[in-house]
Design a protein around this nucleic acid. Structure first.
Length: 307
DNA sequence: ACCCGTGTTCGCTG
DNA sequence: TCAGCGAACACGGG
């Protein structure tokens, strides 16, 4: 269930673990075709031997650029090196979306495969990158030529707050034309507005901006949009810090997988998320309420975020 | 046992 | 026509 901060940590981990390394062998759970479905049988061969050249993140999406080439997909039984044209331009991409429960973990070559492993890549240093996803809401898709700019779903993404920043005037324009009754909290979950904001970050950002999550998005004024912009950036930055700090349940060591910050025992690092019934830490008067919007839980302070 | 869930898409309905 | 809702995906945790 990662949002932008968790996916950013995953991207950093993958760079540290795999950038520049070759994939020696690849395994995919045959029963999990919905997650990883190579375009054709040749892709499996192409994966083994490819070198991981780069890992980018846009919103909640991980974009891996891989390079095959002589000695890559051809490093097989005969050992013969082919230099055909087909083998010379073997760049391709993998688009990874973690869904709700997906994560990339690192294992040693002899380690048992973790429960719910869906894809298992053995690297040339003997380590393995394993994609684990119990609920199988995530996806790992083949992108020919690493042409991520040709993928419609990625094209549709709005600016990424961390890498692109947020232009308040542009955000205000986008909000102004939304359906008249669409709540700002619901609007923020739309990845074409801003890429990477999910349920937690939307709740946290609105609390920081002191905006009622039920307010129609189109009614926000310039000042409020400005506060919202700062709230989103601050919430993402705060969550990233919490993830990086082991004492708050973040990434504990080099081999650890993603820790969701709320896994932290007893110490929820969020200001309102999952705090229904607790006294608001800012006003110290009202209690945090939980409502459902578009089927998702929203947490907010009815005093700080009054209309 | 029952309810909930950090994501997203699809189909139905008013 | 389309905004809005619930279901579906599949499983662990409280």
């Amino acid at each position: 269930m990662p949002e932008l901060p968790e996916v950013e940590v995953a991207a950093r981990n993958l760079r540290r673990w795999g950038q520049g390394r070759r994939i020696r062998a690849a395994w995919a759970d045959a029963r999990a075709k919905r997650i990883f479905r190579p375009a054709n049988p040749a892709t499996a061969r192409q994966l083994a031997g490819a070198r991981m050249d780069g890992i980018q993140r846009i919103g909640k999406n991980l974009l891996l650029t891989l390079q095959g080439g002589p000695g890559a997909s051809r490093a097989n039984r005969s050992g013969a090196r082919e230099t055909s044209a087909a083998a010379l331009d073997p760049q391709f991409g993998l688009w990874s979306h973690l869904g709700m429960t997906g994560k990339w973990v690192r294992r040693r070559s002899g380690d048992p495969r973790p429960p719910h492993a869906r894809v298992d890549l053995t690297l040339d240093d003997g380590s393995r990158l394993v994609y684990v996803d119990p609920r199988m809401f995530g996806r790992l898709r083949w992108v020919p030529g690493a042409r991520f700019d040709a993928v419609a779903e990625l094209r549709a993404l709005g600016p990424d707050p961390l890498t692109d920043g947020i232009e308040a005037p542009r955000l205000a324009e986008r909000l102004a034309v939304l359906p008249a009754r669409l709540a700002i909290k619901v609007a923020l979950l739309d990845q074409s507005l801003l890429a990477g904001v999910g349920n937690i970050q939307a709740c946290e950002a609105l609390f920081r901006a002191r905006i009622d999550p039920r307010r129609p998005a189109a009614t926000l004024g310039r000042v409020e949009v400005g506060r919202l912009r700062r709230g989103i950036l601050a919430s993402i930055a705060h969550t990233l810090e919490a993830l990086a700090d082991p004492s708050s349940g973040g990434v504990a060591d080099a081999d650890s997988d993603i820790r969701y910050v709320e896994d932290d025992r007893g110490d929820n690092p969020f200001l309102v998320y999952a705090r229904a019934g607790q006294r608001c830490t800012r006003c110290k008067r009202a209690r945090i309420e939980r409502v459902v919007q578009a089927g998702r839980a929203t947490f907010y302070c009815p005093y700080c975020q009054r209309a």
